[in-house]
Design a protein around this nucleic acid. Sequence first.
DNA 1: CATTTTTTTGATATTTTTTTGATATATCCC
DNA 2: GGGATATATCAAAAAAATATCAAAAAAATG
Lengths: 228, 228
Amino acid sequence: MAEGAQILIVDDEPQIRRFLRISLEANGYRIHEAATGHDAILKSAQLRPDLIILDMGLPDLDGLEVLRHLREWTKTPVIILSVRDSDQDKVDALDAGADDYLTKPFSTDELMARIRTAQRHAQPQQDEIIFTSGRLKVDLSRRVVTVDGEPIKLTRTEYALLRLLIQHAGRVLTHQQILREVWGPEYVHETHYLRVYFAQLRQKIEENPALPEIIITEPGVGYRLVRL
Amino acid sequence: MAEGAQILIVDDEPQIRRFLRISLEANGYRIHEAATGHDAILKSAQLRPDLIILDMGLPDLDGLEVLRHLREWTKTPVIILSVRDSDQDKVDALDAGADDYLTKPFSTDELMARIRTAQRHAQPQQDEIIFTSGRLKVDLSRRVVTVDGEPIKLTRTEYALLRLLIQHAGRVLTHQQILREVWGPEYVHETHYLRVYFAQLRQKIEENPALPEIIITEPGVGYRLVRL
DNA sequence: CATTTTTTTGATATTTTTTTGATATATCCC
DNA sequence: GGGATATATCAAAAAAATATCAAAAAAATG
C-alpha cells in the first residue's frame, strides 16, 4: 500500500485536478478523479481508494455532506482542501471525521507529507459496504436496504438505528448508547422511543416480527443485531 | 481515555504553557508540563501521556530531536507547534512521525479539534476481553456468553453475577460481597437470592448442574469461579 | 399552503424477569 | 448417626420491562 497507493481526487476544477494528478503521480501514486460529490461517493465505494483528497466547494453537495456520507461506512483517510480558512470550517470538518485540513493555496511538499502522515494513520481496511444478516441486506454506501431482494423504505431515524446496529453487529448496544447515538445525549431516558422504533423496524425487516431473528432484545440491557 | 485524557505540554515559555494549560483543562484534559527537551523525554516515559503537544523551539534539544527520540519507543500522538511556517520544517516534522503541525499563532478551537482528530487516530483496536473456563466463554466487551460455542441468554442479574465472579476468578466471594455488588448494600441479608440465582446460572452453564465444575460452592463462606 | 410522511405521545397487552414461598437435599458438628 | 444448619431446586405470584396499536403533533414535501 505504501508504493502505488490509490488516491481519489475530488475537485470540480479540472485544472486543480490536473495539477494534483501530476504532482501525485510524480510521487508514485495511482490517481482517480471525481468532479462532483455524488461521483465522489460512488467512486469511493467502487474503487475503494487508500486515501481521498476532498475539496470543500463542490457544485452539487457540500464537502461536509460528502464527508459525513463517507464516514457512514468507511474510515479511509480524507484530507480536506478548502479556500476557507475560518476556525469553524476546520473544526466542523475535523469533527466530521476528516483526517487533515489544508487551506488553499498550499505547497505540494506539505500536501505530500500530510498524505504520508494520513497513510500512517490508516486502519486496516475492513469496512464492509454491504451488510447481510439472513434475508436482510444493507448497502451502506448507497443507503439501500433490501429484504429478500425487495427494496424497503426506511425513515431517516429507522435507518440511523439500523446503521448503528450494523456498525456494532454481534454486540449488545445498551438503551443509553442507542439513544445517545441516534437521538442525542439529551434523549438517554426516552426508552419509549426504542420500543416504538424497534417495533417498526422489525415490522419491515423480520419475517415474523413477534419472533425476531435479526434484531434480538436483551431485556434490561439493550438490543443486538445477529451476524450472518 | 476519551474523558480526562492526559496531555503533556512541552514548551519553554511559561506563559504559553500557562495559556495551553488553561485552555485544555477547560476542555476536561489533565495536563502535565515540560520546559526542556530532556524533561519532555523523561516525563513521556514516566507519565505515559495520551498525547503530547510539542513546541519546536526548545533551549536544549531541537523539537525534531525530541520527536525522533520519542518515536523510537512510542506511537503516542504528537502535535507540533512552531513559529516557523516553512514547508521544509513541516515536512521534516511530519516525516519524523509527528501527527500534526500547527503554526503559531493558532486558534484554540482549531487546536482542540486537531487534538480530537489525533486521539481518534491513536485508538488501538479495542482489544476484546474474553474469559474462558472449561466450556464457558464470556466476551465481556460484547456481553456475549457461549457454552460449547452455543450462545446463551442471561438475564441482567445473572450476567452481573457472572461478571462479578469472573472479575474475581479463582477467589472466593462471600455472600455479603456478592449481594452488595450485584443487588446493593441493603440486600446483604437476602441470601435466598443467591440460592435461586446460582441455581439458575448453573442450569445454563454447567454440564451437570448437580455436580458443578465451573461455579463452586464454599459452604458457609460463598462461591468461587474456577480458573481455566 | 395543503398534503403526505414522520415523529412523538399515550394507552394497553404481552412477555420476561425478579421476588417470594415451599420443599428437598446436602453438609457439618457432636 | 442424628439433629441442626446450610444449600439446592421447583414453581407461584408480583413486578418490571417490552411490544403493539393508534392518535396527535410536528416536520417534510411538492
